[in-house]
Amino acid sequence: MGRPLEDIKDGLLKSNIGGNGAAYRRFSYTGAAIAMLLDRISHAWQSRLAEGGRTLRQLLQEAATESMRLPGSVSIEQVLLECGYEEILNGERSREDEQQKKIDSIMENLKSGSGVLVEIEIPHGSTILFDPINILVVRPGVRIHTSICGLKAHNGTEAFVERVCVEDQEPHRFLVRLPGPPEVREDDGFTVSGPGLRVRAPAGFVKETGPASYRISFTEVLTENPPPRHLE
């Protein structure tokens, strides 16, 4: 026996509230939300699901398409309104707008904020360390770590960033803004430090790539005049 319908409705109405586990709550109620919609617009959906070959999402898409063609069919907009989904959708749109504003602000600060821009090369095969709850996706291949991230490579190279940081997949690198130039030491291997930044490797170098811009690379031999990389 499934959960009482009123409990599911109550959970759906609260699913847009933030806090610990908010993303998981939204995910867990997705199937229930689709099933409730199908109850209203496709009374035979359970039999069609039992036949196999279709997901709940596909059944909803089919039912929505059919309902738009049939005269006297149930209005999907009316169903959303009656079940309180419009409030949830509006809340989700508002949350997405706020998130986009946050992303735009972070990216703008990274490009032209105060201090210096530091690029950290991510060696091939490195393990990326991150907090999955504190990630903002800018676009495919680019994401923002809002609290902490880092890397570990097989040769002992490691980096830890405890401030807002952008991870760019092409080329694979971290981009972070510091109050001032990073401090470099080579008396015991290669170490780089700064506020919220710790880097350690068997060998490496720091290259000034432009005004208030630096790149940390983990290569034993420094090639002559390597091309600077800037955030596009």
Rank of each mutant, 00 (worst) to 15 (best):
193 S>M: 07
182 P>S: 08
190 F>Q: 07
185 R>Q: 15
173 R>T: 13
188 D>C: 11
187 D>M: 07
177 R>Q: 04
192 V>R: 02
173 R>Q: 14
177 R>A: 05
191 T>G: 05
203 A>V: 02
204 G>R: 03
176 V>G: 00
180 G>I: 01
195 P>V: 13
195 P>W: 05
183 E>A: 14
173 R>V: 11
191 T>H: 08
193 S>C: 06
175 L>S: 14
200 R>T: 13
192 V>S: 07
200 R>L: 00
184 V>F: 04
206 V>Y: 04
172 H>P: 07
182 P>E: 12
191 T>V: 09
172 H>T: 13
172 H>C: 13
182 P>G: 07
207 K>Y: 02
199 V>I: 15
185 R>F: 06
197 L>N: 06
186 E>M: 12
185 R>C: 06
202 P>W: 02
176 V>F: 10
202 P>I: 06
180 G>C: 11
208 E>H: 00
201 A>D: 07
195 P>S: 11
193 S>P: 01
208 E>K: 01
174 F>N: 08
172 H>N: 07
189 G>E: 08
175 L>F: 14
191 T>E: 15
177 R>D: 04
205 F>C: 02
196 G>D: 04
199 V>P: 09
195 P>R: 04
194 G>L: 04
184 V>A: 08
203 A>R: 01
196 G>R: 02
193 S>D: 13
196 G>M: 05
176 V>H: 02
196 G>P: 10
181 P>E: 10
194 G>M: 06
174 F>S: 10
181 P>S: 11
179 P>Q: 12
174 F>K: 10
205 F>G: 00
199 V>Y: 07
174 F>Y: 15
207 K>D: 01
180 G>Y: 12
206 V>K: 00
184 V>E: 11
188 D>G: 09
188 D>E: 12
176 V>M: 05
180 G>V: 06
185 R>Y: 04
179 P>G: 09
183 E>V: 15
195 P>C: 07
178 L>P: 09
206 V>S: 01
206 V>N: 03
194 G>K: 09
192 V>T: 08
176 V>L: 09
180 G>A: 15
208 E>Q: 12
198 R>Q: 11
178 L>K: 06
206 V>L: 06
192 V>F: 05
